[in-house]
Design a binder for these strands. Sequence first.
DNA 1: AAGTGGTCTAGACCACGCG
DNA 2: GCGTGGTCTAGACCACTTA
Lengths: 233, 233
Amino acid sequence: MSAPSFRNWQSVQEEVRRRIHARIWKPGDLIPNEADLALEFGCARTTVNRALRALADAGVLDRRRKAGTRVAAQPVAKATLQIALIKTEIRERGQDYSYQRLTRSKSIPPAAISDVMQTAQSRALLHIRALHLADDKPYAFEDRWINTDVVPSARAEAFDMLSPNEWLLTHTPYTHGEIAFSATEATADEAAVLKCAEGSALFAIDRMTWDGARSVTKVRLLFRPGHQLRTNL
Amino acid sequence: MSAPSFRNWQSVQEEVRRRIHARIWKPGDLIPNEADLALEFGCARTTVNRALRALADAGVLDRRRKAGTRVAAQPVAKATLQIALIKTEIRERGQDYSYQRLTRSKSIPPAAISDVMQTAQSRALLHIRALHLADDKPYAFEDRWINTDVVPSARAEAFDMLSPNEWLLTHTPYTHGEIAFSATEATADEAAVLKCAEGSALFAIDRMTWDGARSVTKVRLLFRPGHQLRTNL
DNA sequence: AAGTGGTCTAGACCACGCG
DNA sequence: GCGTGGTCTAGACCACTTA
């Protein structure tokens, strides 16, 4: 039972996971280097590297040149959330999706918006408020600002049939963005739109995307009470 | 300007990103295969593969054998959340961290807990309620159940100095887990502990981990009003 | 200074899944 | 069937970091 021989990187990864789980290699421990493991496992170093790199990406290992590879002392739980289109999200739950545009206007945003989007305070942005429904019941309220200097083609869009959520995804490239999750109490307006009690705890997603140094869009999504965002570890 | 020659996978990745951003390759388009790109870029196919694989992982490309590689029609936003220790989280904000155990008992959980943890209804679990503080102000309330059949050594822990959050991370291996984010209204108890108004909107994280088929622990973390979980896209 | 991971290469074989 | 991505190999050089 000396050399079981591991022929692919997944099996090497499994073996390393097994040893960590079995406490053969404990949190904080230095494990053998790639060359030694390759020898032991009977495969090329490249294969070991692939396996260890994947484990490092997953937060299970800490790797540093010269210092070697250690079992992570504090395995950071990395939850990867798939932020899909709301339409897709609802349909995957087996529910009917529908959409209502509430308002559309070109207007000067409040300072809180122009500040974070870093647009001139006097600059008008496209403001859309819309509702996403599941089985004809309010599911999420979308409140969005679009920088038409960056996305001029949005000026021609009514967004009465297609949500900005969806239109922007296929029409607007962005380089980076931020996303934040929080809980907020429903204002009277929001409660009316979502048909819930004023002051209800709502799950909120705030997202802002950039194209280089220019902000493309900022959106706040408010979900009906009880909404959960789930994922696996 | 015909053959700039790309010498590493990052530069290949950048070039592909550039072409997508510049709409040379549009959403849904089929892009050349690896061999052709390797030829064009003047590097080995392995290098192109590495770059394209990374982009597929990031959700920018869709790859299928024989079908080839396409620019993702709906670039799924993948937000990777780093769920660190609360202690670490607070200290990284430059605040003082402190901890208070509120209660510790071995007790029969409500059906809602034994159901999701798949433990026998009559089985007592270790129940800990604790508070995490930032600069001596309530930051998060931890309500945790531990399956002592799976983690017998937890029986000897008082959890009066070290939070279960931290202790479990280094003492208990798990194979997989689930995590859910939601918003909830503070009950009278929760409001008292967090020193906020009853009915406040609280950000909640529910996490459950498993070791194979057996549940290890289930925890609910309730954060003080205004808490945000942020990440980049 | 030296050891470790990071990466590139050229070539090869394989497995999946369209047509 | 066969084209495409997925992966392995052996060897090489490099870059970072720590001792």
